[in-house]
Simulated assay, not measured.
Amino acid sequence: MNRLGSKFVPLLNRRQALELAGAVSLGLTSICLAEENSPATNEKPLEIIDTNIHLFRWPFRRLPLDETVKLVKKLRQFNITQAWAGSYEGLLHRDLSSVNRRLQQQCAEFPELIPIGTINPTLPGWQRDLEDCKTKLNMPGIRLYPNFHHYTLNDSFVSELLQRAESHELFVQIAISMEDGRTQHRSLQVQDVNVSPLPELLGQFPNLPVQLLNAKLPAALIAQLAKLPNLFLDISRVDGSTGIPQLAEVFPLNRILYGSHAPFLIPEATLIRVHESDQFDNSELQAIYAVNVAAMLKASRS
């Protein structure tokens, strides 16, 4: 499953990240990422694994990077050597077998992309879809959208779903939100997923790695979730230059993973937030960017 790219570029420091943001806003097509007047070094630059991207079209508007070729080109600019890709089609389509097959076929064209299958446990045949993700499509994990698919984490079939994922050695990603409620289409208002059932639910599956995507939670709830050793978070909705260090104060750093929520958000937005904090050394950055992913994948095979 480890399909890492071979192209590396130096990682941005804080000044370069801010300059990059300005360059992107001006629509520049060529950006120099090398630090000016810095001595040559033999240190290997940090690799980045993005655990939260999507392919194909966001249902409600066009996004600048919603073509896979353009998105992968952008990821490569920032040394993102692997990206876990769900499918926007999985939000509203009912034939998820076809959705997952198209996703797998698209990801096969790019060595960086790892397909993550969509499962909707309210549809008939979801058990077969889940099994196919592992046995036919060779996917390492599945992605759930409880709010779009109209169920809660309290529903009884969720336990069965997690049990089946654990037996197939699949990790589970739960998208807590996809879009700020203030910008949602009036015909489809979707609330953030209520995560309060997770402590009791995940207590039944201590060996199943579960990652929350796009979660924006109060510190008290994050501290409660921190007690679950198999729960991981991404940082796509963490706000401000101090947000990620503050998250690491209440949630273990070794279970915080990089995720950009691209192409809904531009990939550099999360990178800038990480580097603006200026509070992580290289080993901590590498943990967030890649090392912690290995721990999550190891847990899914234990």
Rank of each mutant, 00 (worst) to 15 (best):
N254P: 05
K7E: 13
L123F: 09
V195N: 02
R301K: 10
L123K: 12
L265Y: 12
T152C: 10
Q105I: 14
D281I: 09
N100P: 12
K73D: 10
A295F: 02
I288T: 04
Q191T: 07
P140L: 00
L170M: 12
D132E: 06
M296T: 00
L271A: 11
A223V: 07
E19N: 04
E131P: 01
L221Q: 15
E284N: 05
T270D: 06
Q279D: 00
L137S: 00
L91A: 01
R101A: 08
R273V: 02
M1V: 10
L253E: 04
S25I: 08
R143L: 03
L208S: 08
A40F: 12
S302G: 11
P218F: 04
R255K: 13
I116G: 06
V158G: 07
P206R: 09
Q184H: 08
G240F: 02
Q127P: 08
I49Q: 06
A215Q: 04
R182Y: 09
V72I: 07
A83L: 09
L221A: 07
N230A: 08
W126N: 10
F8M: 14
A23L: 05
V274I: 15
I256A: 03
C32N: 15
N2C: 10
C32H: 10
I31E: 08
N2S: 14
A108G: 14
N79W: 07
L123V: 11
G181T: 05
T122D: 06
L33V: 13
N230K: 01
L285G: 05
M296Y: 02
I48H: 10
N42A: 15
Q211A: 14
V158I: 11
Q204H: 09
N37T: 02
M1A: 13
Q173R: 09
S97W: 03
Q105A: 15
R61Q: 13
Q106A: 14
Y289N: 05
D50T: 14
P124D: 14
T81H: 04
N282Q: 03
L212T: 06
G117W: 03
M296L: 15
L170D: 06
Q189T: 09
P64F: 03
Q16H: 01
H168K: 14
T183E: 07
E109N: 12
G5N: 10
F157N: 14
I116K: 00
P39D: 12
S156I: 11
V291P: 04
V293E: 08
L231C: 04
R14T: 00
G90Y: 03
